[in-house]
Nucleic acid binder design. Structure first.
Lengths: 420, 420
DNA sequence: TAACTTTGTTCACAATACGAACGAAGTTAT
DNA sequence: ATAACTTCGTTCGTATTGTGAACAAAGTTA
């Protein structure tokens, strides 16, 4: 009686994160993470543990509900292997990508498979409480839609547009959202989702993580992810790990100076990359071209738009062969490329991924960036360098947020912050 | 008989690197590395192993000759602890810092204590065989002077002025020493010193390692070490580890563009930092000032020198209050600072250490660098940033080379490249 | 149908690591 | 000065951990 009651309690409790395990079990989980579906013998040969021990640990993990059997594989000339996988029904993960004007949220299973995605307009100038309550509602909306319980949310990964003290999980002097400084995002979410582990990171860092876990950055040790949109930022991966810097503001390349005689930036300095080459600068130049007559097409688009032009208008004009628009995009690409050239010399990455709203500017932008980098970097640093748009599109952020949360799903005895 | 013979053989063989040990023994060694001299109980509490097990492993390590007893410590209110330390007589390490015109070599014991240091002029344009033979002779000279055997050299750390493929231990497309490309430095040294493990790294990287292990960089996770001399280079530490980049040329900031209208650099581009702010540029500007009459003092020094001026002359002139010399140094500092400002935004280090020949230019240079960085970097990135000269002087390189070699002294069963 | 192969479990055994007890060496309180 | 406590390190019995060998299960191939 006693024993059976205890075991029932335990199997229920085990549905709540974090999942505690020993080192050998962690090896098994790691092997499963890598391979997805694999046999006991396969796990044994990956982990190095004997077949006997491996089998035993797997029995334990199945007992706890972490693993499930997934039918049988094909015979390799003998008995068919019994396949195993991590129990995706163990619970759910949430990824949040907080932008200045919108929230991107996904609900995924513990395997990282996205079940639902929501995008919602929002204003980051709201108070953190209001804004995050909105986020919680979005999560609960998905929870309801997917018919799961809110206490099955095991991890929440959050990307925010500002510098983050990663270990404390708070924003540090964020220019876009001053009221958020030191706001305890982690405990806010844990009030509503007490079963979940909450990780906060910079928005570009989570995009880089997304690229590293689910994009073309898999297996790449040194790369830079550039986000070009309203601002310009970057996520840095060094030796396979995110480089966040001393106080978490690494990658903030938007305010690198490209021209001391340039226009004044919102940061107060002159000639910042962001002020000269990001979205607003591009549309500003386009408006000038429309007004001063150098581009009749842009002028027409402006008039049709009621006096406004967006980045996508410049792109359209460029596609239709408008020289002024092309020149604006080229100039932007060259300035970005000049900055990247310095960073390539300094950091020697093997890949640069470019993402963010400006991505659909297409090849003209990419070509000018590449050309500038090739011209100004050391030949050695560029021989093995690829510069490309991220193929993950707008999903890089939330994908990375989920991947980040997923890292902290399991906890190993003795090791305070173990990542599987 | 058999047994005793065997054990003699074993204890002799154990004098040759690498020293193989199990995981628990490695924990003991690691604790000893950290504390230097420590009791058995102390090791037990650091490693987490029980007193019984710790004692046993220590007995084994003493038996192998890796550890020695170091008298007794002071009582903490009970029996006096028996102190232990790593056996410094185990063998010796060599650090080599190869410069364009000189070799800096040290012989150290396995504790890292420098026993002897030699500096010798050399020309890197020699063939690798000639040059490295010269290095070997220097090492043997020290070996003789210190009355140790050449087969007691257990590790050689080498810093070379060029990009290094660290895992293969060869230079990759080095501009200063084209004939060295892919030359097997490692096996060259192992012919003469078959008992030693040879590690090759970039010259600025080993300076950064020196700063990290024995200088003000101890415990600093993110820093940049800048070397300013004939050229300008940097060593990068991210998350406590050297960042070498995709092909090993990370940190090569000398060819970052500071002025597109600037003079032509030896790399072929225009306006590189190196061409505008490094040693040769400084002396060139000083010569101009001497010739065009804007500095009578420099003119006099030039004439006394037979038409030449060195960086130290500019420094002297500056100290004596010469305005032209001061302006030259300030301009150099500002350009370096402007580049560093970009790197600070990108990398967010907590420390920048400046070393190399130009270091003794003193405060004028440092102040202008700091001022430029503070003006052009994000305030957030500079709040916690310290920019200082390295206090290790010309010994940073060799110290780092020894530290690097020392990491590979012990090898743990199963783990291919374990660092203690 | 017999002879291999591969998978996974069982079980006895070896090794590993620990706790408790103890001896050794010192310090502090009375 | 002596008793009582502390700390250090070793010894030893024991519990735990992990393994290899044997075996059972399930299939494939000659």
């Amino acid at each position: 009686m006693m024993v059976s009651e205890k075991s029932v309690e335990k199997s229920f409790a085990s549905l709540h994160a974090p999942f505690i395990m020993n080192a050998a079990e962690a090896d098994v989980i790691r092997a499963l993470r890598k391979k997805g579906v694999i046999s006991r013998t396969g796990i044994s040969s990956i982990t190095g543990w004997s077949k006997a021990k491996t089998s035993q640990e797997i029995r334990s993990l199945i007992g706890k509900g972490y693993l499930v059997e997934e039918g049988e594989g094909t015979s390799q000339g003998g008995r068919r292997p019994g396949l195993l996988r991590i129990n995706d029904q163990l619970g759910y993960l949430v990824g949040l990508d907080i932008g200045a004007t919108s929230i991107d949220a996904v609900l995924a299973d513990v395997g990282g498979k996205v079940l639902q995605r929501i995008t919602s307009p929002a204003d980051v100038r709201q108070s953190p409480e209001e804004f995050l309550s909105h986020c919680s509602e979005l999560i609960l909306e998905m929870v309801t839609a997917q018919a799961c319980r809110h206490d099955q949310i095991l991890g929440i990964g959050v990307g925010v547009p500002g510098p983050v003290d990663f270990s404390r999980g708070v924003l540090v002097a964020p220019p876009l959202m001053p009221g958020w400084e030191n706001f305890p995002i982690r405990s806010f979410f844990q009030q509503t989702f007490p079963t979940s582990y909450v990780v906060i990171d910079n928005d570009v860092n989570i995009m880089a993580i997304g690229e590293q876990r689910a994009g073309d950055g898999i297996g790449v040790d040194h790369f830079i992810f550039i986000k070009i949109g309203t601002g310009i930022g970057s996520g840095i991966v060094s030796n396979g790990k995110i480089h966040r810097g001393s106080i978490g503001c690494a990658g903030d390349i938007g305010h690198i100076c490209v021209d001391k005689q340039g226009p004044i930036c919102r940061c107060g300095n002159t000639g910042c990359l962001e002020a000269m080459a990001a979205g607003p600068a591009v549309t500003e130049k386009a408006l000038q071209a429309a007004k001063n007559g150098s581009s009749p097409l842009l002028r027409k688009m402006m008039e049709d738009n009621g006096g406004f032009l967006g980045p996508e208008d410049v792109n359209t004009a460029c596609r239709e062969g408008d020289q002024a628009a092309l020149e604006i995009i080229r100039a932007s690409g060259q300035m970005i490329g000049d900055v990247l050239a310095s960073l390539v010399n300094f950091f020697n990455p093997s890949h640069i991924f470019i993402g963010g709203g400006i991505t659909n500017f297409g090849n003209h932008l990419l070509v000018s960036i590449r050309r500038a980098v090739l011209r100004r970097s050391l030949p050695l640093a560029t021989t093995d360098l690829s510069i490309n748009f991220s193929r993950m599109g707008p999903e890089a952020g939330v994908t990375g947020a989920v991947a980040l949360a997923r890292e902290y799903l399991f906890i190993v005895e003795g090791q305070p912050t173990f990542k599987v």
